[in-house]
């Protein structure tokens, strides 16, 4: 087993670990830190892929990940959390042990699902696909179990990280133009969400999505 393979496996394992950590983490600031950590792992994975294949554009991609996912987005989110005065907020989780158990089941499912695709893939990073899929599903699960809009956005960004990791691990990254497009989309999404948070809070004095739950048919209740 080559050094590159071992490195990628290590990074993949750390990815999975951060995904579980995010699932269990209650503090919003800590969640943002974990997201930044995922960004670092992603950058490392891309660097390894670039080193193995020697594709120059993968270095660029790694730089993009570093700037966007380690610096820009976490900074944005941290400022958002500070401006919305949410540093000390603790998310009321839906029964952490159960969530973790469901997460483990999801990982097994994800590995099972990835099996045939990994077998087809000729890349050095084949074992990582299952983990990438698992982190997508775990991020999704996190979005489902959270109430606060900010943590859902973090979940969304974590999902995107998982997808990106899948792309790097299976196909050595996407074409540059696609990566640029996705990066831009994520950035714009972060801005839009930021604006949204302020609007939600202005309207409801809270970021809890329970306040959005009035029925569309509106039984006597105004939104």
């Amino acid at each position: 087993m080559s050094l590159a393979n071992q490195l990628v496996d290590l990074i993949a394992a750390l990815m999975l670990l951060t995904s579980f950590a995010m699932l269990a983490q209650r503090r919003l600031t800590a969640l943002v830190d974990l997201l930044a950590l995922q960004g670092v792992l992603l950058t490392a994975a891309t660097l390894v892929a670039a080193w193995v294949t020697g594709h120059a554009h993968l270095y660029l991609s790694a730089l993009l990940s570093l700037v966007l996912k380690v610096v820009v987005l976490p900074t944005l989110l941290r400022r958002l959390v500070r401006r919305l005065d949410l540093q000390w907020d603790r998310e009321a989780l839906v029964n952490t042990p159960t969530t973790m158990l469901v997460g483990i089941v999801l990982v097994i499912v994800a590995f099972n699902l990835a099996l045939p695709i990994s077998a087809l893939s000729g890349s050095i990073l084949r074992g990582a696909l299952g983990i990438a899929l698992a982190s997508v599903l775990l991020a999704f699960l996190m979005m489902i179990t959270r109430r606060k809009a900010v943590s859902q956005v973090i979940g969304f960004l974590a999902m995107e990280n998982g997808l990106f990791f899948a792309a790097t691990s299976v196909t050595y990254g996407m074409p540059m133009i696609v990566e640029l497009g996705i990066a831009l989309d994520v950035l714009v999404a972060a801005f839009v969400f930021g604006i949204f948070f302020f609007r939600i809070r202005e309207t409801f004095d809270s970021l809890d999505t329970r306040h959005l739950e009035t029925h569309p048919a509106g039984e006597g209740e105004d939104v």
Binding site: V109, N112, L113, L115, P116, L133, L137, F140, L141, M143, I144, T145, R146, R147, Q152, T209, L212, E213, T214, H215, P216
Partner: peptide, 22 residues
């Protein structure tokens, strides 16, 4: 109107489709 449940719908659909492919 419950966002979590809408997410569960997409999640279940995603899983079902993945399993179908598998």
């Amino acid at each position: 109107g419950r966002i979590q449940w809408y997410l569960v719908y997409s999640f279940a659909t995603l899983l079902a489709l993945l399993v179908l492919i598998r």
